[in-house]
Simulated assay, not measured.
Amino acid sequence: MASSINYKHLHYFWTVAHEGSIARASEKLHITPQTISGQLSLLERSLDSDLFRRNGRQLELTETGRLVLRYADDIFALGTELRDVLRGAPAEGPIDFIVGATSVLPKTIVYKILEPSLKLSEDIVLTSREGPIETILAELAIHKVDLVLSDAPLTTAFRVKAYNHFLGECGLSFFAMPRLARRLKGPFPQCLDGAPMLLPTEQHGVRRSFDQWLADREIYPKIRAQFDDSALVKSFGHAGEGAFFMPSIIEKEVCENFGVRVIGSTEDIKQGFYAISAERRVRHPAVAAICDYARGEMFS
């Protein structure tokens, strides 16, 4: 591998990656496609790794390409910042803040976590996305999102360079519509034995903790349905299809919004909440506000 990187070649790669094709990069850079293609080949040779692969007529980044793009984004963003500072033009305008949240997180929790970012003096423009953890972590890796909210920390199972920021944790409360609650027999949690239940799918950490908690107590509910989306759990619960659980921190909101009642709660199962960022040290003002509020007030 070469001892140093040719930054002109890196800039060509960066432009192609963002434009999506050599042809569009050629138009933007006013350089022939043949020149760009040749420079990319030289860069790949110096890195001893392919940066793109073809999928039909489309160019796709390889895993190494995504890694290089992440660093290239930082390099050229700093270059632009330096240029503006030297020109005496400090950064102005709104600050984009893009957050990805796993679908298992209750929407009320996501709102409570993100709310401080909208109260900053800075002009923050919030964009919230939702989806499977694999998808939103991939977007974090290529800087399409600034932060990921999850109920579990990032592990080595995900080949993404990112950092966990623990926000807090709380116990679980269990809910049912009044008609179903009246049919449950015995004290909590024994009343869950044989009871119809609506649960998150087994891929989620809180579900695995819940299953172990039940097994330790020899309680066997009847699983009626499983969901990745917490909103569906509450909607089916409101329809009387089964009992369900949510983080105790939103107990009041769940009862008011869905007409259910609390049938019990436990601190033996903790649901944790994490902010995952591409930076070890939090620099984005909205991320700092979220972490400070969650740790100092929300979960204190």
Rank of each mutant, 00 (worst) to 15 (best):
P116A: 08
S117N: 08
S117D: 03
S117A: 13
L118W: 07
L118S: 13
K119H: 15
K119A: 07
L120S: 01
L120I: 02
S121K: 09
S121L: 10
D123T: 07
V125K: 14
V125H: 12
L126V: 12
T127P: 06
S128K: 14
R129V: 11
R129C: 10
E130Y: 15
G131A: 05
P132S: 13
P132Y: 14
P132Q: 11
I133S: 03
E134L: 13
E134M: 10
T135Q: 15
T135V: 11
T135G: 11
I136W: 00
L137R: 01
A138K: 13
A138G: 15
E139H: 14
E139S: 12
L140Y: 02
L140V: 11
A141S: 12
A141F: 05
A141Q: 05
I142Y: 07
H143F: 10
H143R: 15
K144M: 10
V145K: 01
V145I: 12
D146T: 08
D146H: 11
L147I: 05
V148D: 06
V148T: 05
V148H: 02
L149W: 01
S150Q: 07
S150C: 04
D151F: 03
D151Y: 06
A152N: 08
P153V: 04
P153W: 11
L154M: 10
T155H: 12
T155Y: 12
T155M: 10
T156I: 08
T156N: 09
T156H: 12
R159E: 15
K161F: 10
K161Q: 14
K161H: 13
K161W: 12
K161E: 14
A162M: 06
Y163K: 08
Y163A: 02
N164M: 09
H165Q: 07
H165L: 06
H165D: 02
H165T: 09
H165V: 06
L167P: 00
L167E: 05
G168I: 06
E169Q: 13
C170S: 15
C170V: 14
C170L: 07
G171S: 09
L172V: 13
S173L: 04
S173R: 04
F174Y: 14
F174D: 05
F174G: 03
F175S: 00
F175N: 00
A176S: 08
M177S: 11
M177K: 11
M177P: 02
M177H: 11
R179K: 15
L180G: 03
